[in-house]
Nucleic acid binder design. Sequence first.
DNA 1: AGCTATTTGTCCGGAAACGAACACCTTTCT
DNA 2: AGAAAGGTGTTCGTTTCCGGACAAATAGCT
Lengths: 181, 181
Amino acid sequence: MQDIRKVKTERDIQTALLKLLREKTFDKITIADICATALTGRSTFYDHYTDKYALLEQMVAHYTDLFARLMHDRLNVLMSESGDKALIAFYKRLQPQGQAILTLLDVHEENADLTKNIKQELKEEWTHYLDTSDRPSTLPRDFMVFLGTDVVMSFIRWSLTHTVDEAIAHFAGRFRQAMFE
Amino acid sequence: MQDIRKVKTERDIQTALLKLLREKTFDKITIADICATALTGRSTFYDHYTDKYALLEQMVAHYTDLFARLMHDRLNVLMSESGDKALIAFYKRLQPQGQAILTLLDVHEENADLTKNIKQELKEEWTHYLDTSDRPSTLPRDFMVFLGTDVVMSFIRWSLTHTVDEAIAHFAGRFRQAMFE
DNA sequence: AGCTATTTGTCCGGAAACGAACACCTTTCT
DNA sequence: AGAAAGGTGTTCGTTTCCGGACAAATAGCT
Protein backbone atom coordinates (compact mmCIF):
# COMPACT_ATOMS: atom_id res chain seq x y z
CA MET A 1 0.00 0.00 0.00
CA GLN A 2 1.22 3.46 -0.82
CA ASP A 3 0.98 6.62 1.23
CA ILE A 4 -1.62 9.13 -0.02
CA ARG A 5 0.71 11.99 0.78
CA LYS A 6 2.95 11.09 -2.14
CA VAL A 7 0.04 11.14 -4.56
CA LYS A 8 -1.31 14.33 -3.13
CA THR A 9 1.89 16.34 -3.07
CA GLU A 10 2.74 15.33 -6.61
CA ARG A 11 -0.74 16.27 -7.74
CA ASP A 12 -0.42 19.61 -5.95
CA ILE A 13 3.00 20.33 -7.40
CA GLN A 14 1.86 19.48 -10.93
CA THR A 15 -1.31 21.50 -10.63
CA ALA A 16 0.74 24.39 -9.30
CA LEU A 17 3.08 24.29 -12.27
CA LEU A 18 0.18 24.28 -14.70
CA LYS A 19 -1.36 27.25 -12.96
CA LEU A 20 1.91 29.17 -13.02
CA LEU A 21 2.43 28.33 -16.70
CA ARG A 22 -0.77 30.25 -17.40
CA GLU A 23 0.77 33.30 -15.72
CA LYS A 24 4.39 33.26 -16.83
CA THR A 25 6.84 31.33 -18.97
CA PHE A 26 8.59 28.22 -17.73
CA ASP A 27 11.99 29.83 -17.37
CA LYS A 28 10.58 32.58 -15.15
CA ILE A 29 9.10 30.02 -12.76
CA THR A 30 11.19 29.15 -9.71
CA ILE A 31 10.96 26.12 -7.46
CA ALA A 32 9.91 28.47 -4.69
CA ASP A 33 7.04 29.70 -6.87
CA ILE A 34 5.82 26.19 -7.44
CA CYS A 35 6.01 25.24 -3.78
CA ALA A 36 4.27 28.42 -2.70
CA THR A 37 1.26 27.83 -4.92
CA ALA A 38 1.29 24.10 -4.22
CA LEU A 39 1.45 24.75 -0.47
CA THR A 40 4.38 22.40 -0.02
CA GLY A 41 7.79 22.80 1.48
CA ARG A 42 10.63 23.42 -0.90
CA SER A 43 12.59 20.43 0.34
CA THR A 44 9.58 18.27 -0.41
CA PHE A 45 9.87 19.23 -4.05
CA TYR A 46 13.32 17.72 -4.19
CA ASP A 47 12.01 14.55 -2.56
CA HIS A 48 9.95 14.00 -5.70
CA TYR A 49 11.82 15.65 -8.57
CA THR A 50 15.44 16.41 -9.23
CA ASP A 51 14.61 19.83 -10.69
CA LYS A 52 11.83 21.69 -12.45
CA TYR A 53 12.84 20.26 -15.80
CA ALA A 54 12.38 16.72 -14.53
CA LEU A 55 8.94 17.71 -13.32
CA LEU A 56 7.95 19.15 -16.67
CA GLU A 57 9.41 16.22 -18.55
CA GLN A 58 7.45 13.75 -16.46
CA MET A 59 4.24 15.65 -17.03
CA VAL A 60 4.77 15.97 -20.76
CA ALA A 61 5.65 12.28 -20.94
CA HIS A 62 2.46 11.45 -19.08
CA TYR A 63 0.19 13.39 -21.40
CA THR A 64 2.05 12.17 -24.45
CA ASP A 65 1.43 8.63 -23.31
CA LEU A 66 -2.20 9.39 -22.53
CA PHE A 67 -2.75 10.80 -25.98
CA ALA A 68 -0.96 7.93 -27.69
CA ARG A 69 -2.96 5.28 -25.86
CA LEU A 70 -6.22 7.08 -26.48
CA MET A 71 -5.43 7.40 -30.17
CA HIS A 72 -4.35 3.79 -30.66
CA ASP A 73 -7.40 2.52 -28.77
CA ARG A 74 -9.78 4.08 -31.19
CA LEU A 75 -7.66 4.32 -34.27
CA ASN A 76 -9.39 1.72 -36.37
CA VAL A 77 -12.72 3.42 -35.71
CA LEU A 78 -11.36 6.92 -36.12
CA MET A 79 -10.01 6.20 -39.54
CA SER A 80 -13.13 4.41 -40.75
CA GLU A 81 -15.60 6.05 -43.07
CA SER A 82 -18.27 6.65 -40.42
CA GLY A 83 -15.95 7.90 -37.72
CA ASP A 84 -17.90 11.00 -36.78
CA LYS A 85 -19.20 9.63 -33.49
CA ALA A 86 -15.85 8.05 -32.72
CA LEU A 87 -14.21 11.42 -33.17
CA ILE A 88 -16.59 13.00 -30.70
CA ALA A 89 -16.01 10.15 -28.24
CA PHE A 90 -12.28 10.68 -28.63
CA TYR A 91 -12.51 14.36 -27.66
CA LYS A 92 -14.84 13.50 -24.81
CA ARG A 93 -12.05 11.38 -23.39
CA LEU A 94 -9.54 14.19 -23.88
CA GLN A 95 -11.78 16.92 -22.48
CA PRO A 96 -11.16 16.31 -18.72
CA GLN A 97 -7.41 16.76 -19.27
CA GLY A 98 -8.05 19.53 -21.76
CA GLN A 99 -6.87 22.49 -19.73
CA ALA A 100 -3.63 20.76 -18.77
CA ILE A 101 -2.96 19.64 -22.31
CA LEU A 102 -3.64 23.08 -23.75
CA THR A 103 -1.21 24.81 -21.43
CA LEU A 104 1.47 22.20 -22.02
CA LEU A 105 1.05 22.51 -25.79
CA ASP A 106 2.51 26.00 -25.50
CA VAL A 107 5.59 24.93 -23.59
CA HIS A 108 8.63 24.05 -25.66
CA GLU A 109 11.62 22.76 -23.75
CA GLU A 110 14.46 20.54 -24.88
CA ASN A 111 13.10 17.24 -23.56
CA ALA A 112 9.60 18.39 -22.80
CA ASP A 113 7.56 19.44 -25.82
CA LEU A 114 4.04 18.04 -25.90
CA THR A 115 3.24 19.56 -29.26
CA LYS A 116 6.32 17.96 -30.77
CA ASN A 117 5.49 14.59 -29.19
CA ILE A 118 1.89 14.55 -30.32
CA LYS A 119 2.87 15.60 -33.81
CA GLN A 120 5.34 12.74 -33.87
CA GLU A 121 2.62 10.29 -32.86
CA LEU A 122 0.31 11.67 -35.50
CA LYS A 123 2.99 11.58 -38.15
CA GLU A 124 3.71 7.91 -37.52
CA GLU A 125 0.03 7.15 -37.55
CA TRP A 126 -0.62 8.94 -40.82
CA THR A 127 2.40 7.29 -42.40
CA HIS A 128 1.24 3.87 -41.36
CA TYR A 129 -2.30 4.63 -42.45
CA LEU A 130 -1.28 5.83 -45.87
CA ASP A 131 1.05 2.87 -46.39
CA THR A 132 -1.64 0.33 -45.62
CA SER A 133 -4.50 2.17 -47.26
CA ASP A 134 -5.95 0.68 -50.42
CA ARG A 135 -6.89 4.12 -51.67
CA PRO A 136 -3.84 5.60 -53.38
CA SER A 137 -3.49 9.32 -53.88
CA THR A 138 -1.78 11.31 -56.60
CA LEU A 139 -0.19 13.63 -54.04
CA PRO A 140 3.25 12.89 -52.52
CA ARG A 141 2.94 10.78 -49.40
CA ASP A 142 5.17 13.02 -47.31
CA PHE A 143 3.04 16.00 -48.14
CA MET A 144 -0.11 14.23 -47.04
CA VAL A 145 1.52 13.16 -43.79
CA PHE A 146 2.69 16.69 -43.21
CA LEU A 147 -0.68 18.22 -43.93
CA GLY A 148 -2.62 15.54 -42.07
CA THR A 149 -0.77 15.94 -38.79
CA ASP A 150 -1.04 19.71 -38.85
CA VAL A 151 -4.75 19.59 -39.57
CA VAL A 152 -5.40 17.10 -36.79
CA MET A 153 -3.31 19.23 -34.47
CA SER A 154 -5.46 22.19 -35.37
CA PHE A 155 -8.64 20.23 -34.71
CA ILE A 156 -7.36 19.18 -31.30
CA ARG A 157 -6.52 22.71 -30.21
CA TRP A 158 -9.85 24.03 -31.42
CA SER A 159 -11.82 21.23 -29.83
CA LEU A 160 -10.19 21.64 -26.45
CA THR A 161 -10.64 25.40 -26.29
CA HIS A 162 -14.20 25.22 -27.57
CA THR A 163 -16.40 22.13 -27.73
CA VAL A 164 -16.83 19.55 -30.42
CA ASP A 165 -20.25 19.48 -31.98
CA GLU A 166 -21.65 17.30 -34.74
CA ALA A 167 -20.80 19.84 -37.42
CA ILE A 168 -17.11 19.97 -36.60
CA ALA A 169 -16.82 16.22 -36.33
CA HIS A 170 -18.59 15.81 -39.65
CA PHE A 171 -16.32 18.32 -41.31
CA ALA A 172 -13.30 16.43 -40.04
CA GLY A 173 -14.60 13.32 -41.72
CA ARG A 174 -15.22 15.20 -44.95
CA PHE A 175 -11.72 16.56 -44.87
CA ARG A 176 -10.17 13.12 -44.46
CA GLN A 177 -12.14 11.94 -47.47
CA ALA A 178 -11.14 14.98 -49.50
CA MET A 179 -7.49 14.05 -49.13
CA PHE A 180 -8.06 11.03 -51.35
CA GLU A 181 -9.78 12.74 -54.22
CA MET B 1 5.80 30.13 12.44
CA GLN B 2 3.14 27.64 11.63
CA ASP B 3 3.34 24.48 9.57
CA ILE B 4 1.78 24.75 6.08
CA ARG B 5 0.44 21.24 6.39
CA LYS B 6 -2.13 22.35 8.93
CA VAL B 7 -3.41 25.07 6.64
CA LYS B 8 -3.39 22.80 3.65
CA THR B 9 -5.14 19.88 5.31
CA GLU B 10 -7.88 22.06 6.69
CA ARG B 11 -8.35 23.72 3.34
CA ASP B 12 -8.56 20.34 1.64
CA ILE B 13 -11.04 18.97 4.15
CA GLN B 14 -13.25 22.03 3.89
CA THR B 15 -13.14 22.06 0.11
CA ALA B 16 -13.98 18.37 0.13
CA LEU B 17 -17.03 18.92 2.31
CA LEU B 18 -18.28 21.69 0.05
CA LYS B 19 -17.84 19.49 -2.98
CA LEU B 20 -19.70 16.62 -1.34
CA LEU B 21 -22.51 18.94 -0.24
CA ARG B 22 -23.18 19.61 -3.89
CA GLU B 23 -23.65 15.88 -4.44
CA LYS B 24 -25.52 14.71 -1.34
CA THR B 25 -27.04 16.00 1.90
CA PHE B 26 -24.95 16.56 5.00
CA ASP B 27 -26.34 13.59 6.91
CA LYS B 28 -25.43 11.22 4.07
CA ILE B 29 -21.82 12.37 4.12
CA THR B 30 -19.40 10.25 6.12
CA ILE B 31 -16.00 11.17 7.52
CA ALA B 32 -14.53 8.58 5.18
CA ASP B 33 -16.19 10.36 2.25
CA ILE B 34 -14.65 13.65 3.23
CA CYS B 35 -11.19 12.18 3.70
CA ALA B 36 -11.37 10.28 0.43
CA THR B 37 -12.12 13.40 -1.60
CA ALA B 38 -9.72 15.52 0.45
CA LEU B 39 -6.97 12.93 0.01
CA THR B 40 -6.23 12.84 3.72
CA GLY B 41 -6.10 10.04 6.26
CA ARG B 42 -9.15 9.55 8.41
CA SER B 43 -7.17 9.92 11.61
CA THR B 44 -5.95 13.27 10.35
CA PHE B 45 -9.52 14.49 10.25
CA TYR B 46 -9.83 13.90 13.97
CA ASP B 47 -6.59 15.77 14.54
CA HIS B 48 -8.40 18.89 13.36
CA TYR B 49 -12.08 18.45 14.14
CA THR B 50 -13.98 16.51 16.77
CA ASP B 51 -16.63 15.42 14.26
CA LYS B 52 -18.26 16.47 11.01
CA TYR B 53 -20.64 18.78 12.84
CA ALA B 54 -17.75 20.70 14.35
CA LEU B 55 -16.29 21.07 10.88
CA LEU B 56 -19.52 22.42 9.45
CA GLU B 57 -20.06 24.72 12.41
CA GLN B 58 -16.62 26.21 12.03
CA MET B 59 -17.15 26.81 8.33
CA VAL B 60 -20.56 28.38 8.82
CA ALA B 61 -19.16 30.55 11.61
CA HIS B 62 -16.37 31.66 9.32
CA TYR B 63 -18.64 32.73 6.48
CA THR B 64 -21.10 34.32 8.89
CA ASP B 65 -18.27 36.39 10.27
CA LEU B 66 -17.02 37.24 6.80
CA PHE B 67 -20.43 38.44 5.75
CA ALA B 68 -20.95 40.44 8.93
CA ARG B 69 -17.62 42.21 8.63
CA LEU B 70 -18.15 42.95 4.95
CA MET B 71 -21.58 44.36 5.66
CA HIS B 72 -20.53 46.54 8.57
CA ASP B 73 -17.55 47.85 6.67
CA ARG B 74 -19.68 49.31 3.94
CA LEU B 75 -22.92 49.80 5.74
CA ASN B 76 -22.96 53.54 5.84
CA VAL B 77 -22.35 53.70 2.12
CA LEU B 78 -24.72 50.87 1.31
CA MET B 79 -27.62 52.57 3.02
CA SER B 80 -26.92 55.94 1.52
CA GLU B 81 -28.96 57.36 -1.33
CA SER B 82 -26.36 56.78 -4.02
CA GLY B 83 -25.33 53.31 -2.93
CA ASP B 84 -25.52 51.64 -6.32
CA LYS B 85 -21.78 51.42 -6.82
CA ALA B 86 -21.27 50.43 -3.21
CA LEU B 87 -23.68 47.57 -3.70
CA ILE B 88 -21.76 46.33 -6.70
CA ALA B 89 -18.50 46.62 -4.77
CA PHE B 90 -20.06 44.64 -1.94
CA TYR B 91 -20.96 41.74 -4.21
CA LYS B 92 -17.53 41.89 -5.83
CA ARG B 93 -16.06 41.17 -2.42
CA LEU B 94 -18.51 38.33 -1.90
CA GLN B 95 -18.04 36.82 -5.35
CA PRO B 96 -14.80 34.86 -4.72
CA GLN B 97 -16.45 33.04 -1.82
CA GLY B 98 -19.71 32.83 -3.74
CA GLN B 99 -19.75 29.14 -4.52
CA ALA B 100 -18.98 28.17 -0.92
CA ILE B 101 -21.59 30.55 0.46
CA LEU B 102 -24.26 29.34 -1.93
CA THR B 103 -23.81 25.71 -1.01
CA LEU B 104 -23.76 26.48 2.71
CA LEU B 105 -26.94 28.53 2.39
CA ASP B 106 -28.78 25.30 1.65
CA VAL B 107 -27.48 23.45 4.69
CA HIS B 108 -29.57 23.70 7.81
CA GLU B 109 -28.16 22.04 10.90
CA GLU B 110 -28.79 22.78 14.55
CA ASN B 111 -25.73 24.94 15.19
CA ALA B 112 -24.72 25.48 11.59
CA ASP B 113 -27.19 27.43 9.50
CA LEU B 114 -25.67 30.15 7.38
CA THR B 115 -28.99 31.37 6.05
CA LYS B 116 -30.29 31.76 9.57
CA ASN B 117 -27.14 33.57 10.67
CA ILE B 118 -27.08 36.00 7.78
CA LYS B 119 -30.78 36.71 8.21
CA GLN B 120 -30.11 37.47 11.86
CA GLU B 121 -27.36 39.90 10.90
CA LEU B 122 -29.62 41.56 8.35
CA LYS B 123 -32.50 41.76 10.79
CA GLU B 124 -30.39 43.54 13.38
CA GLU B 125 -29.07 45.87 10.75
CA TRP B 126 -32.48 46.77 9.39
CA THR B 127 -33.81 47.28 12.89
CA HIS B 128 -30.98 49.60 13.78
CA TYR B 129 -31.31 51.41 10.49
CA LEU B 130 -35.03 51.99 10.86
CA ASP B 131 -34.66 53.12 14.46
CA THR B 132 -32.07 55.73 13.60
CA SER B 133 -33.56 56.80 10.30
CA ASP B 134 -35.08 60.24 10.12
CA ARG B 135 -37.55 59.08 7.51
CA PRO B 136 -40.52 57.54 9.31
CA SER B 137 -42.81 55.09 7.57
CA THR B 138 -46.51 54.39 8.04
CA LEU B 139 -45.90 50.64 7.90
CA PRO B 140 -45.18 48.62 11.06
CA ARG B 141 -41.48 48.52 11.79
CA ASP B 142 -41.38 44.73 12.30
CA PHE B 143 -42.96 44.22 8.92
CA MET B 144 -40.36 46.35 7.23
CA VAL B 145 -37.56 44.51 9.00
CA PHE B 146 -39.09 41.20 7.97
CA LEU B 147 -39.53 42.23 4.36
CA GLY B 148 -36.19 43.98 4.14
CA THR B 149 -34.13 40.99 5.28
CA ASP B 150 -35.93 38.60 2.96
CA VAL B 151 -35.50 40.91 0.00
CA VAL B 152 -31.80 41.39 0.67
CA MET B 153 -31.44 37.64 1.09
CA SER B 154 -33.05 37.20 -2.29
CA PHE B 155 -30.70 39.72 -3.86
CA ILE B 156 -27.71 37.94 -2.40
CA ARG B 157 -28.71 34.55 -3.73
CA TRP B 158 -29.47 35.92 -7.15
CA SER B 159 -26.28 37.94 -7.35
CA LEU B 160 -24.09 35.01 -6.41
CA THR B 161 -25.64 32.59 -8.88
CA HIS B 162 -25.67 35.16 -11.66
CA THR B 163 -23.74 38.41 -11.75
CA VAL B 164 -24.61 41.86 -10.53
CA ASP B 165 -24.97 44.45 -13.23
CA GLU B 166 -25.84 48.12 -13.06
CA ALA B 167 -29.53 47.46 -13.60
CA ILE B 168 -29.90 45.11 -10.67
CA ALA B 169 -27.96 47.37 -8.35
CA HIS B 170 -30.04 50.32 -9.40
CA PHE B 171 -33.25 48.41 -8.83
CA ALA B 172 -32.08 47.51 -5.33
CA GLY B 173 -31.65 51.17 -4.59
CA ARG B 174 -35.08 51.98 -5.96
CA PHE B 175 -36.60 49.29 -3.82
CA ARG B 176 -35.03 50.65 -0.65
CA GLN B 177 -36.44 54.07 -1.47
CA ALA B 178 -39.85 52.59 -2.20
CA MET B 179 -40.07 51.24 1.33
CA PHE B 180 -40.28 54.79 2.65
CA GLU B 181 -43.07 56.04 0.43
C1' DA C 1 34.25 43.54 -13.55
C1' DG C 2 32.82 43.30 -8.96
C1' DC C 3 28.93 43.23 -5.56
C1' DT C 4 24.53 41.92 -4.12
C1' DA C 5 20.41 39.38 -4.27
C1' DT C 6 18.20 35.42 -5.70
C1' DT C 7 17.89 30.77 -6.83
C1' DT C 8 19.45 26.10 -6.56
C1' DG C 9 20.27 21.77 -4.48
C1' DT C 10 21.29 19.25 -0.04
C1' DC C 11 20.92 18.08 4.72
C1' DC C 12 18.75 17.34 9.20
C1' DG C 13 15.81 17.19 13.58
C1' DG C 14 11.15 17.68 14.63
C1' DA C 15 6.18 17.95 13.50
C1' DA C 16 2.23 16.44 11.02
C1' DA C 17 -0.11 13.03 8.47
C1' DC C 18 -0.31 8.28 7.53
C1' DG C 19 -2.31 3.26 7.70
C1' DA C 20 -3.92 -0.16 10.48
C1' DA C 21 -6.16 -1.92 14.20
C1' DC C 22 -9.32 -1.44 17.82
C1' DA C 23 -13.94 -1.34 20.53
C1' DC C 24 -18.25 0.68 20.22
C1' DC C 25 -22.46 2.09 18.13
C1' DT C 26 -26.01 2.31 14.45
C1' DT C 27 -28.16 0.58 10.31
C1' DT C 28 -29.62 -2.97 7.21
C1' DC C 29 -30.76 -7.45 5.91
C1' DT C 30 -33.08 -11.80 6.74
C1' DA D 1 -34.15 -11.05 17.10
C1' DG D 2 -29.69 -12.04 15.54
C1' DA D 3 -26.04 -11.53 12.16
C1' DA D 4 -23.54 -8.76 8.95
C1' DA D 5 -22.05 -4.42 7.31
C1' DG D 6 -20.77 0.10 7.83
C1' DG D 7 -19.72 4.39 10.47
C1' DT D 8 -17.54 6.53 14.62
C1' DG D 9 -13.89 7.89 17.47
C1' DT D 10 -9.30 6.62 19.51
C1' DT D 11 -4.62 4.89 19.69
C1' DC D 12 0.10 4.04 18.12
C1' DG D 13 4.34 3.03 15.46
C1' DT D 14 5.94 4.55 10.95
C1' DT D 15 6.50 7.56 6.94
C1' DT D 16 6.38 11.78 4.80
C1' DC D 17 6.66 16.50 4.90
C1' DC D 18 8.20 20.60 7.08
C1' DG D 19 11.25 24.65 8.32
C1' DG D 20 15.63 26.29 8.59
C1' DA D 21 20.36 26.37 7.53
C1' DC D 22 23.88 25.72 4.33
C1' DA D 23 27.33 26.21 0.28
C1' DA D 24 27.38 26.81 -4.49
C1' DA D 25 25.75 28.54 -8.63
C1' DT D 26 23.32 32.13 -11.30
C1' DA D 27 21.23 36.58 -12.35
C1' DG D 28 20.90 41.40 -11.93
C1' DC D 29 22.91 45.86 -10.90
C1' DT D 30 26.21 49.70 -11.18
